[in-house]
Design a binder for these strands. Sequence first.
DNA 1: CTGAAAGCGCTAACAC
DNA 2: GTGTTAGCGCTTTCAG
Lengths: 361, 361
Amino acid sequence: MSDAAPPAKRSRRSSGAVTLHDVARLAGVAPITASRALNTPAQVSAEVLRKVSEAVARTGYVPNRLAGGLASTRSRLVALVVPTVSGPVFLDTIQALTETLDAAGYQLMVGQAGYEGRREDALLEAIIGRRPDGIVLTGILHSDASRRRLLASGIPVVETWDLTPTPLDMLVGFSHQAVGEAVARYLHGRGRRRLATLSGDDPRATQRAQAFARAAEALGLPPVRAVVVKAPTTLQAGRGALTALMAEHDAPTTLPATRRGRGRMAGPPVDAVFCSSDLLALGLLTEARMQGLAVPDDLAVVGFGDLEMAAQAAPAISSVSVNGAGIGVQAARFLIERAEGRAVAERVVDIGFRLIERHSS
Amino acid sequence: MSDAAPPAKRSRRSSGAVTLHDVARLAGVAPITASRALNTPAQVSAEVLRKVSEAVARTGYVPNRLAGGLASTRSRLVALVVPTVSGPVFLDTIQALTETLDAAGYQLMVGQAGYEGRREDALLEAIIGRRPDGIVLTGILHSDASRRRLLASGIPVVETWDLTPTPLDMLVGFSHQAVGEAVARYLHGRGRRRLATLSGDDPRATQRAQAFARAAEALGLPPVRAVVVKAPTTLQAGRGALTALMAEHDAPTTLPATRRGRGRMAGPPVDAVFCSSDLLALGLLTEARMQGLAVPDDLAVVGFGDLEMAAQAAPAISSVSVNGAGIGVQAARFLIERAEGRAVAERVVDIGFRLIERHSS
DNA sequence: CTGAAAGCGCTAACAC
DNA sequence: GTGTTAGCGCTTTCAG
C-alpha cells in the first residue's frame, strides 16, 4: 500500500504486538506465505518453512486469533453453559470437554447461567457475540427467545445431561425419567415400601423425583413423600431434611390429595429415600446416624452422581452413576466434527446410567 | 465503496449473520452512528437511539465481538489458568471471578494447565492469541519462557493463591509458609508432639508442609514425618495413607538423616497430621475410625480448604479456611480497573487465612 | 508452490 | 451529534 514516497505514516493504534507482517518481512516472504507456513505447512516448501519458523522463534510471534477468526469465520472457541461451576456434578464433563477440545486445538469458554434461568438470555448473547464454533449446553434450553436466537446464529449446539424428543441440534445425555423409575423399582425389589424423595429444585432433579413417584404408585406403593430443597444442593441441606422426611404428619406429596394418607403403615413414615445428589444423601446419612437411625436397616439411602465421597462414606452410599466424562468427550467430538465440516450422522447419544448398589440400601 | 455501476458483486464469504451495517441501513444512519448508539448511547440523540434499538430488535442483531476486539484492541475476555477444574479448591474463585467479570461485561475463558506443568506453555500461547484483557493465574508461574512471553504480551496478569516477593504483575493470595507455621504452632499448643504431614505433590502444598516441618523443628519437636501423594488429592489417597503414616519404621522426612530417630517416644509414631486438603483429611479420618483409632484422642487431623464436607464430617474437621471467593473478586477488580485504563495503586493483596478449630484436633 | 488484492465486521481518528 | 475514511491482523479468492 504505502510503498513509495510518503514516509508511510504509521497511523492509528496498532497494539504494538508482533504481527504476521513482521514475521513475513523477516523471513523474506509474503504475509500469506507465512500464514500458510503456520497453518498448512504441507503447502509450502521446506525452505520457506524453515525461514518462517525461525522468524517466529526470533520474534516471539503469537498469532492474533481474533483477526484469524474474523477472517475465516472459525474462532476455534467452544462455549459451555453450566448452571454453576460450584457443583461437583459437571466437573468431569468440564474436564473431559477441555481436554478433548484442547487436543484438537480448541479453547473452552465457560459461562454460568445460574439455576434461576434469569441470566440465560444475556449469557447466550455474550456467547453468540464471540462467534464460537460450538456451544455446549447443560440441560435443555428453557427460554423460547434463546432457542430462536441460537437457531438463527447457525452455531452448532450440543445439549447434554438430558434427553428430549425435540433436541435443538445435537444431544448427548440420558433419561432422568428412566433413572427415577429404575431406582423406585430397585428399592421396591429390596422390600422397601415407604418411599420418599429429597431433591434440589432444578428441572432434572425434579424429573427424576416425579418419575420415581409415578413408578412407586404403579408398583402399588403408598404416595411418595417429596421434600424439595433449593439448588445447588449441599450437605447441610441433606442433614436438615431428615426431620421433614421423618415427620409424622403428612408432608406434601406429588400425588392428588385424595390419595394422601392411604396405605399408611406403622413404624417410621419413611424407609427409603432417593436423593437428587450424593451431597444430599451423605448429609442425610450423617444426620440419620447421629439421631440413632440405622442405615440401611431403618432407612435406605440412594444418591445421584456417584461422587467419590459416596463410595468412601461409611456406610458406602448407593448411587446412580453417570459417565460425565463420556458426555464431555462425546459433546466435544460432535462439535469438532461439525467445525471440520463433516456432517454428524447420529445426532443423539443416550449415554445411559448405572445404579451402583452399596451398603446404604 | 460500491455505489455506482457494477452490481456490487457480493464477493467472498460473509458469515451470513446480521451485521452492524444492516442495522444501520435499517435505521437510516451511518454504521458508526449505530455503533455509538449501542456502545455509548449518551453520545447520540434520542431519536437515533430509538431507531437503532428498533432495528436491533427487528433483526436480532448480535454484535461480532471478534471484529470489535480486533478494531478496539479490547476483547472483553479474561482468561483463567487452573491446574484442573476437578479439584473443589478453586471453585469458589472461579465462581466469584465469573460473576464479578460478568457484571462488568467480561467473559471468562478457562484453561487447564494440569499439575505437571507440561502444557503450561502451549496453554499460554493459546490464551495470548485471543488477546484477552487480562489473565488470572492460579499459583505463580513456573516456566521462564512463559514469564517472558506473558510480559512481552503486555496483557495484565494477576497471580493468585500464593504470595511472592517478585510478582509478575498483580497478585492476590496468601502465604503458604505462614499457614504451615500456624498449624504447627497450633498443634504444638494443643499438646501434640509427634507431627506428620500428608500432602499432594503440588508446589503450594509442598510449601505448607515444609514450613510446617521447619516450624516443628524450631519448637523442639522431633522430625516431622512427611507422606506425599499425587495431586490432585482424593479421599481414597487419604484412606490409603494411614498405614504409611502409622508405620513403625522411619518414614522419609524432610530433615537431614543425622537428626532422624532422635527424640522418638513410645506409643503410636504420630499423634497429629496436617493434610494438604480436606479430602485427604476426611479420607484419613474415615480410615482411622475404621481401624479403631480415636480422633482426636489418638490422632489429631487438620485439613486445608475448609470445604463444606470438613464442617459436616463427624467429627468435624479442623481446617485452614481461605477466602477463595474473595480472591476471585479481587482478581477481577484488578483486571477490570486495568482494562478501563485506571492504574492500580496497590498491586499486591494478602488475603490471609483462618485456622478453623473443630473437633478433629 | 507463491503472491496480490480484497475484505471479514467493527471502531479510532479526524472532519463537518 | 453525525459522517467519512482508514485500518485492526488475518485469510479467502483468484492468478500466476
